[in-house]
Design a protein around this nucleic acid. Structure first.
Lengths: 182, 182
DNA sequence: CCTAATATGTCAATATGGCTGACGTAAACG
DNA sequence: CGTTTACGTCAGCCATATTGACATATTAGG
């Protein structure tokens, strides 16, 4: 893999050379801020989840099923990029506890399309509210127009190969929400 | 290519509608983008780390010790917000493999001040380079001025109680780096 | 000086959330 | 038919986190 070359190539001694890639560069503080920001962003929901014995894995499933009612298990695996064995455990707990239901696909009955129960929707809404609140607060502090910049930045941070799919995913979910609330 | 779609997508109106009361909120897409952006941001380093049998925990320690040479174990625990038992294992591996050294504090000899070896610095630099490169690319795509907005956003996402400490941490590290490279 | 507090390390047990490999079952497809 | 697809599941492993208890050195205070 190309990363091996990176590792060996830059194994020179650290010195006061002017072109040190890690030297406070213009983005070094952003690395740390991203770490702290993401930790706190996730932390809100973690507390709620811990109370009912769930973790982040459950949150991710709740979130995406909520955004994409009727999505297939395979789709979820693709989005989360985990194995079906890993997902299986989490999904079973969510189903057993009455947060998620699975219905056979109308056209292809092998599919187990995923939906949230009202209980699941309530939890997903609570979690989303916490994160939305933090985001809204942050956006307010950044002033108007910041949203567009920040959205563009987040997209630009995603692997170029994955961007298109992510954008499609979001657009499709937004369309679904529009239909539901119409 | 994908970039065309991205630019058209992000020049569109973001989200369903800018401000819709009672809906899933205008920040819903940002929740997902943050998830994907952070995953890919971390993913670069994960690959390198996996090759030498390390994980994210090692990365975090490398990063902060690199930024704060001579920091105490207690400081690290405070920053990472994990238990010393968890840190212990990771730290031992890093020391055993020659990435980190511990020296007794000059004033208080109970302290084991943490430093990177040149080997540790090389690895930390490699990892930082990957993340810095992604960040720099993303900032470029966002145009000039975006950096300020994004930095402000990331700070605003941090718990208000923790912000001051984080800002101090970053400022101190930047100062240290400036002194080292002078 | 002795005791208490501090900084750190470590042992043991446990949980979560990933992973691989192998196998089963039902349904669709050709 | 037989093959492929969509999904589930069993068994075991690994990484990272947790709590609780205890050990050791060193500093600080009455």
């Amino acid at each position: 893999m190309a990363d091996v070359n990176v590792s060996t190539a830059s194994s020179r001694l650290p010195g006061p050379e002017p072109d040190r890639p890690g030297s406070s560069g213009p983005t070094f503080d952003l690395i740390e801020l991203l770490f702290f920001a993401y930790r706190d962003f996730i932390g809100d929901a973690d507390e709620v989840l811990a109370e009912i014995g769930f973790g982040r894995a459950h949150h991710r499933v709740l979130h995406f099923v909520n955004r994409h009612p009727g999505m297939r298990v395979a789709d979820l695996l693709d989005v989360l990029k985990i194995t079906k064995q890993s997902l299986g455990r989490v999904l079973r707990e969510l189903v057993d506890d009455g947060y998620v239901v699975q219905k056979a696909g109308p056209a292809d009955r092998r599919q187990r399309l995923l939906y949230l129960t009202s209980k699941g929707e309530a939890l997903a809404r609570d979690l989303a509210t916490l994160q939305t609140r933090r985001l809204a607060r942050a956006l307010t502090e950044c002033g108007p127009g910041a949203r567009v910049t920040i959205r563009r930045f987040l997209v630009a941070m995603i692997d170029t190969e994955a961007r298109e799919e992510v954008e499609r995913l979001i657009a499709r979910a937004d369309r679904a929400v529009r239909n539901r609330t119409r």
